[in-house]
Design a protein around this nucleic acid. Structure first.
Lengths: 192, 192
DNA sequence: GATTTAAGATGATATTCATCATCTTTTTAT
DNA sequence: ATAAAAAGATGATGAATATCATCTTAAATC
C-alpha cells in the first residue's frame, strides 16, 4: 500500500494499539512480536516504526489503553448510587469465569502486572500509572471517607490475586471456588 | 571439565535448579536463558541437557522448588498454636518491603504466576500444583473448620495481588500503603 | 499541477537463544 | 586393569525477532 491520510493514520494507530492490547494480554509481553501485532491488525511489520519508537513504547500505549477500557465504567458512573452499582458490577465481572477464561479483554493488571516490571522503564512507568489510575477509579466508587483508598488497595489486590491464581488452576471446580471465595470477601469490602 | 560422580551430578543438578529458581523469579521466565542459568551456576551451557529435557522442564522444577521453600515453614509447624504463629509470620514476611524488593527469594506465585500460563503444559502443570500446595499449606495453618480452604484461597489471592501491585508502584510511600492495607485485611482473615 | 513528504510494503540485518554435535576426561561396570 | 558410559566443555546451527533501509504511491504543501 502507500501513503494514507492523517485520519487514516490515526485509525491505523488506534488499530495497532487495540490489537496489541488484546494480544499482549492473551499471550504475554514476550509472547507477542511486533510483526504479530501488525499482521493481526491487517498490516505488515515495516510500517510499525512510523507509529512507535520501539516495542516497549507500544506496550506502554497498549497497557494504558487496556486500563482505560477496563475501568471506563467506573469513571463514567455519576452519583453515589450509580458509583456503588458500577463497582458492584465491576467486581462481579472481574471475578467471573469469563474473565478467567479470556484475559485478552480483561484487566491488564492481572494479565500483565507480573511481567511489566521486566520491561523498559517507559513501560514500567505506564504500568505504574495504569495501576494508580485503576485504584483511583475504584476508590472513587467507594463510599467517601478516609479509608476509601485503603479499601480500594485491598480490593484491587484481592481481585488481581484471585484472577492470577484462578488462571493457574487446571481444575474448573477449583477455579470456581477461588472466584466464589474472593467474591464473598470483595463484597465485604464494597458493601459492608 | 569432565565426567563427575553421581553425587557430584546431584549437587550440580540442585545448583542449577536453585539458581534457576532465583533468576526466573528475579527476571521472569522469558528474561533468563538456559545459558544464563548455567553460567550463574558456575557451569557452561552445554551440560544443561544432561539434566533437563528442555528449558520448560527446568522452569517446572524451579517453580516447584521455589514453592517448597517459600512454604516450608508452614508445613513444618506442628500443633495449633505453632501453626497460627507460622501463618502470622508468613503473612508478615510476605507483606514486607523486603519481599517487594527481592522477588528472587520470594513467592513464585507472585513473581511468576502471571507468565506461567504462557509456558508449556508441563510448566503450567507445575505451577498449578505449586499453587495448590501453597494454598493447602496455608489452609493447614488456619483454624480447623469448613471455611478453612475458602479462607486460604482469599488470603493467598490477597497476598499475591498485593505484592503484584506493590511491585508495580514507583512510589515507596504508595508501596508501603498497599502493604499496610493488605496486612490489615490479611490479619482479619488469619486472626479473626 | 508540480514538488515534497511520509504511510505502509518489501526485504535486509544482527542479535539472541534453545537445542544439538562432538570432544575430553573421569567415573562406573566388567 | 580395561572397556564402556556419561558429565561437562566447546563450538555449531537454526529459528525467532527487533530494528533499519529502501521502495512505492498517494496525500500535503506550494
Amino acid at each position: 500500500m502507500a501513503r494514507v491520510s492523517r485520519e487514516e493514520k490515526q485509525r491505523t494507530h488506534a488499530a495497532i494499539v487495540a490489537t496489541a492490547a488484546r494480544l499482549f494480554r492473551e499471550h504475554g509481553l514476550a509472547g507477542v512480536g511486533v510483526a504479530d501485532v501488525m499482521s493481526a491488525a491487517g498490516l505488515t511489520h515495516g510500517g510499525f516504526y512510523r507509529h512507535f519508537a520501539s516495542k516497549d513504547a507500544l506496550i506502554a500505549a497498549a497497557f494504558a489503553q487496556a486500563v482505560e477500557e477496563a475501568t471506563a465504567a467506573l469513571a463514567a458512573a455519576d452519583g453515589a448510587a450509580a458509583r456503588q452499582a458500577a463497582l458492584l458490577r465491576y467486581v462481579d465481572v472481574y471475578l467471573s469465569r469469563e474473565h478467567v477464561d479470556r484475559p485478552s479483554t480483561g484487566c491488564p493488571l492481572a494479565a500483565l502486572g507480573g511481567e511489566a516490571r521486566h520491561a523498559a522503564p517507559e513501560t514500567a512507568d505506564a504500568a505504574a500509572a495504569g495501576m494508580d489510575r485503576a485504584i483511583a477509579r475504584v476508590a472513587r466508587c467507594l463510599p467517601a471517607g478516609q479509608a476509601r483508598l485503603t479499601k480500594a488497595r485491598c480490593l484491587m489486590s484481592l481481585l488481581v490475586g484471585a484472577i492470577t491464581i484462578a488462571r493457574l488452576s487446571r481444575d474448573a471446580t477449583d477455579r470456581e471456588a477461588i472466584l466464589a471465595a474472593a467474591r464473598e470477601d470483595a463484597l465485604r469490602i464494597v458493601a459492608p
